[in-house]
Design a protein around this nucleic acid. Sequence first.
DNA 1: TCAAAAGTGTTTGTGGTACACCCATGG
DNA 2: CCATGGGTGTACCACAAACACTTTTGA
Lengths: 222, 222
Amino acid sequence: MARTSDIFVTVDVVIFALRDDDLQVLLIKRKNQPFEGKWAIPGGFVHHAESLEDGAIRELYEETGVRGVHIEQLYTFGTLNRDPRGRMVTVAYIALVPAPLALHAGTDASDAQWKSIYALPEMAFDHADIVHYALKRLRYKLEYTAVGFRMLPPKFTLSQLQHAYETILGEKLDKRNFRRRILQAQVIEETGEMQSGDGRPAKLYRYREDSVAEVKARRLFP
Amino acid sequence: MARTSDIFVTVDVVIFALRDDDLQVLLIKRKNQPFEGKWAIPGGFVHHAESLEDGAIRELYEETGVRGVHIEQLYTFGTLNRDPRGRMVTVAYIALVPAPLALHAGTDASDAQWKSIYALPEMAFDHADIVHYALKRLRYKLEYTAVGFRMLPPKFTLSQLQHAYETILGEKLDKRNFRRRILQAQVIEETGEMQSGDGRPAKLYRYREDSVAEVKARRLFP
DNA sequence: TCAAAAGTGTTTGTGGTACACCCATGG
DNA sequence: CCATGGGTGTACCACAAACACTTTTGA
């Protein structure tokens, strides 16, 4: 039996948010070797007394101060030579956070910044692969589940929601079809409140916690 | 920073095959503590010089003598107290093997047997969860990809293929609709050969290696 | 000629897509 | 009254589902 105690397990979290009409991920500029000055996904070693998911939740909290948001396992990256310092197995997670946030720079970072997925900087390790895979998964998931809400405030208008979908998917959607489908899916409900703005006031909706977010039978947006 | 070198990484493989008109998984009866006498998914520690996927391929080969079959990462299980011997992180894989096989009992097993997914024995660790999750994923995947072939011999009839789908999904399918869809999807082609049997001979088909197995636009069997 | 499995089309319903105008408010 | 964004319905098309009989072979 091979020795295994020299395999290190890390959790990294691809944190998505909608900012400035753009889909962005939170990246950290490395201040140490290897890949000093390159950008990396927040993450670190799993603690001995925490589960993988708790580790991901902790990393998310340390970087953003946010708790209780949508987080899910993406994939586990375990090829050789991912990190020159040793054998690393990285369990990657996706987190969706609902709004722009003040950032806590972590101890392992000289800088943490939101970066557009359309203009990603040079990244450390295989983190570019991880972000691209996370984006693919997020878009795919949006087609048949209701995760879009998780990147909006608790109350939102249908236009905001459609805008979120369009920003994430990178394409325009038809307003009437969008509204019909999202309402038919019964995943949101009216709050009764209205939001005043530049034109006609809009109804505010909220996510229905009792709804079945996973639409198995048919995709929401094929 | 917590010590991490006492976290062990294992790969376990849920190996599916169609046997006796039944969907079965390969399980190993444990001959050591903990869970002595209970059944477990084949697996073991990742070697230092192999990737996770190579580890899964190796485990599969050690148990079945099979190589070159469909294998994919399922999920990584990393809660605490999964194994009384220490902190284990298990990267689970799914493998689909094309036919009944002679088995190599491994060094860590007193017995290896195919077990029906409808009559699973008492299992060690959280392996029952892993098998159930693997089954869910296999069925889900079958609805929108062409993985069904991977559990058949290289040449097969449409009836055999339909039977495979029915066995995996656990439901009857309409013959005419099945044939129309699977042919429209362009994932298989005629070999030109026929298979004689009890009634009218059937055309033999093969998987088209050039096909796009992933049918994104619409599910094959919603 | 009979048993056993292979093979084949049509109809009906549902859901997806495309598309343009009126409404309510604030300035 | 005008600018701005909110809100609404219908017609067409493509695909899914339901459904029963004929064909080919071996015994």
